[in-house]
């Protein structure tokens, strides 16, 4: 009597392995996309924060001061220079002298632009535009899906009274 031995054929194994590979690959792909989206959102959030920051700082200064800064850029705060694409500096030792950025912030650079204008109602205002973009070939550049983040706002001349 012939001893019949039961086993997977090579073909079966190949097919099974292929199926497993597809499943595993899908999982990897999903994970990768999730990572990418997550990192994109993280860096986008960081970029928006870096863009909003000078707008809020300069909004607090008010139109009159900002108008002077617009005419003489040297009056701008050193952390927020006007018209210059400047890298964000992460310096934990200098944290008491300014805002403590997260380490990833140094992977960005920022451009602050001011423009003075008059509205149809004869109201003077400074339009402020902040562009934040990755600094060179960094993680931010890799993960951020957008080339740059641009945020605009207007700061109106305050009333005389």
């Amino acid at each position: 009597m012939m001893n019949k031995r039961k086993a997977f054929t090579l073909m079966e194994i190949i097919i099974a392995m292929a199926l497993i590979a597809v499943v595993i690959l899908s999982i990897f792909m999903i994970n990768k996309n999730a990572n990418e989206t997550s990192m994109d959102a993280y860096y986008e959030m960081l970029a928006f924060s870096l863009a909003r920051e000078p707008i809020e700082i300069y909004r607090g200064f008010g139109y009159e001061t900002l108008s002077k800064i617009n005419k003489d850029n040297s009056l701008a705060l050193p952390q927020y220079p006007i018209g210059k694409l400047t890298p964000i500096v992460f310096d934990p030792l200098q944290s008491n002298k300014g805002i403590q950025y997260p380490p990833d912030a140094e992977r960005f650079q920022r451009l602050i632009e001011l423009n003075e204008d008059i509205s149809r109602n004869n109201q003077k205002y400074i339009s402020i535009r902040v562009t934040v973009m990755p600094l060179g070939l960094t993680k931010a550049d890799i993960w951020l899906s957008r080339k740059s983040i641009i945020l605009d706002s207007n700061i109106m001349e305050s009333s005389k009274w």
Binding site: R52, N121, Q123, L151, S153, I155, E157, S158, S159
Partner: peptide, 20 residues
Amino acid sequence: EMARQFALSAQEEAFKYLCD
């Protein structure tokens, strides 16, 4: 965030308009 900046600008402008 963009809408928020529009709202902040509009708020300032509306107040200025009211004062003027």
